[in-house]
Amino acid sequence: MDTETNNPKTAALVANGTISNFEKIGSHVRSFPYVVAVDGGICNCQQMDVTPNIIIGDLDSAPPELLQQYSDVPQKLFPANKDKTDLELAIEEAASQGMERIVIFGALERRMDHSVYNLHLLRRHPGLLSIESEYETLFVIDHTMEVPCQQGQTISLIPLGGSVQGVTTKGLKWELNHATFNRDFMSISNICLSNSFLVEVQSGDILCCLCK
């Protein structure tokens, strides 16, 4: 999925999860026209030398001294007792600003429950959301999509929400033709044959993991 950072309607959300290479990810985040620090994600912003456009959350994981350092950055505060996570609220804020593409950094955490929940957030906004790390780009496909890639790049397709019907691919080493994905069948470590591949999904949605 092309993040198109030159598009003014593209936003980067920096969450409080693990970022291993601050220099590499920071360089990418700084290319976005709009950056949201999601609660304790302000710590990752500091490590990457990124000044966000806004800080969002209940700020329970944002050190007060760090918030003071970013006192000129607007904050949108929420109560600690709420029905949505800080990341969900940040997605809603970015969408309300008319963003056409939202890329989340630091979404994969040491806590597996948070990581799995964040993956399921992709299913709510297919085509809008993606998650990026140093190692992969993650997004959901629920229709026909042509995905830019590099020859030899590794690609996996995984169902997150039950059975997925009519999965067809073009441009991969091991092609699929109207396959049914479920807990017993999925596509792991397939290989891109050129600079793009096509995935068609007739019913349901699948997580696409494009390794870097």
Results as ranks from 00 to 15, higher is better:
A11V: 10
N182E: 01
G161S: 14
C192V: 09
V50P: 03
G127D: 11
E92A: 14
A37T: 00
P79D: 12
V38T: 08
A37D: 00
A95S: 06
W174Q: 03
M186H: 13
V201H: 04
E88P: 10
L87D: 04
S115R: 13
D49K: 15
V73Y: 13
R101Q: 10
E100K: 12
N190W: 01
L89H: 05
I91K: 05
S27K: 15
E23C: 07
P74E: 11
N53T: 11
L176R: 09
V29G: 13
T85A: 03
I54Y: 11
N118E: 03
V103C: 09
I102H: 08
G41H: 10
L172R: 12
N44S: 14
G26I: 15
D113R: 10
N190H: 11
G162Q: 01
F78E: 07
V116G: 03
F139D: 05
N81I: 07
G162S: 01
Y135K: 15
Q97Y: 00
F181M: 14
E88V: 03
R110A: 04
A95G: 00
S187L: 07
G106L: 05
C209F: 00
I54K: 06
L172E: 10
F185I: 10
N53Y: 01
I155F: 07
D39S: 12
Q150M: 07
N190E: 03
G98E: 12
L193M: 13
L210F: 06
L13S: 14
P33Y: 00
P64K: 14
C209M: 08
K9G: 02
Q153I: 14
E4D: 13
K82P: 03
L122G: 05
T169M: 08
L66K: 06
C208Q: 10
K9H: 11
N195D: 15
G127C: 05
H178V: 08
E4V: 05
C208N: 03
G162W: 01
L210A: 09
E175L: 05
R110C: 06
V73L: 14
I25P: 09
N195Q: 13
A179C: 07
L119W: 02
Q165L: 12
S133G: 12
T51C: 02
C209G: 03
S71V: 04
